Amino acid sequence: MKNVRRTSTSSPVIHNGYRLVGVYCYDIPLTQPLQLAHGRLQQRQGLLLKFADQSGFYHWGEAAPLPGFSRETLTDAIDALWSWLDRQLSFEQLPPSIQFAIDMATSVVTERLAKTAEVSTQSVPLAAQLVTANETPQQLAPLAKLKIGSANVDADINRFNQLQRQFPATRWRLDCNQQCSLQQAEQFCHNVDLSVIDFIEEPCSHLDETVALAAQGVPVALDETIQSNQVELAMFSGLRALVCKPTLVGALTRCQQWQQFCQQHELAFIVSACFESNLTNDYLARLAKLWAPEQIPGLDTLKALGADLIHPRSADPSLPLLSEAELDLVWKLPS
């Protein structure tokens, strides 16, 4: 990122007793270009916020808007952060990715996680394996996730049926990203084996169409719907899960409201990643262990990133590690 360096504010920024001491930009290459529903991603960019607690220990938060999915761009997030530093915006007015980054470093939930046994992505069993577009896997985990919702419904049907025949022991989570009409979703569901599908995330462009599809016996999950600040969700027949991506939802208090909704209605609460760095992936693994220990989280996106930040993702790292000194410092608390 260029031209984002910022001079220090006149006084320290303190949130929940934590003092912001630095802001960094990162740019991580992907292991290969990633075709998402809304475009092609070549690299992952984001911000790291470094906070210090009262004991002098440092805590990291990550803001990484996902292009095509986040309401804000990375530039929007940076501009909002500067306004927050200048006390022109409150925490509640910040975009979701910045809210999550601040909470990741400073919230009461984070303090609870710090007191629990260490959990990393590697120790979360059976993370749903992501099958990307045009990928031909040689083997699959017991649970896999597949993107559907292309313009060619027949192609989606054929691809899923081929994978299901190739891996008959695998269960599936399908993600449509609201790309289908009700008629297209019905066509897909009438031509596949629904018994091997845990749920289809956001199958239709409008919630009322998704509700109508679920009423026909199709198990569905909501993702994009719960990212809206205005949504007042009511339970409906066929709803099986809420998929919560904190980078897109925002404050952890909002995420926890959806977790409590799932508890109330006996739904699966799925903590899911947005191709953030290893720092956030490990954090989400611990969050999933705290909030939904019986559920399999969606944390298989880390394999797409070609480098780690600050801490290696395993004891035997095989990827480049970008230390704090190698990141682009864009703001620092004056000494």
Rank of each mutant, 00 (worst) to 15 (best):
N177P: 02
S205F: 02
D154L: 09
L140D: 12
D156S: 14
L163P: 05
A141N: 00
P168M: 13
Q183N: 05
V153R: 09
C176S: 14
A155E: 04
P142W: 01
P203A: 11
C204Q: 11
I157Q: 12
I200G: 10
Q139I: 00
F188D: 07
E202F: 04
C204F: 13
H190R: 14
L207A: 14
A133S: 04
A151S: 12
I197A: 09
Q139H: 02
L130F: 09
S181N: 12
C189G: 03
P137V: 07
A128L: 13
D156Y: 12
S150M: 08
S205C: 08
I148L: 02
I200S: 11
C176Y: 10
A185V: 14
C176K: 08
C189W: 05
E186W: 07
A185K: 10
A141P: 00
Q166D: 10
I200T: 14
L130H: 05
A155D: 08
D156Q: 15
I200N: 08
C204L: 07
V211M: 00
C180D: 11
S195M: 10
L140F: 14
Q129A: 15
L130A: 09
K147T: 14
T170K: 03
A144G: 10
Q129Y: 15
W172D: 05
A127P: 09
E201Q: 14
I197D: 10
L213V: 01
Q129S: 15
S150F: 09
L146W: 07
T170Q: 03
N161Y: 01
V192D: 02
L143E: 15
P168G: 13
Q184D: 08
D175A: 05
L130K: 06
Q129D: 15
L174S: 03
A212P: 03
V211Y: 00
Q178I: 09
A141E: 00
Q166M: 11
I148P: 00
N161F: 02
I157T: 14
K145T: 03
F199P: 01
T210C: 11
F188S: 10
A133I: 07
A144D: 08
A141V: 00
Q183C: 04
C180G: 08
A212S: 14
E135W: 02
V131C: 12
L140W: 15
Q184F: 02
E186N: 08
P137W: 06
R173D: 12
R171G: 10
Q129N: 14
P203C: 11
R159H: 00
S150E: 11
P137L: 06
L182A: 10
A212E: 11
Q139G: 00
D156T: 15
L182D: 09
P203R: 04
L143P: 10
E135Y: 01
D198V: 00
A214D: 03
G149A: 06
N191Y: 02
T170C: 08
E202P: 05
Q183H: 06
D156W: 13
R159K: 01
H190T: 10
L182K: 08
V153S: 11
Q187W: 09
A141Y: 00
N161M: 03
W172Q: 07
F199A: 06
D175V: 03
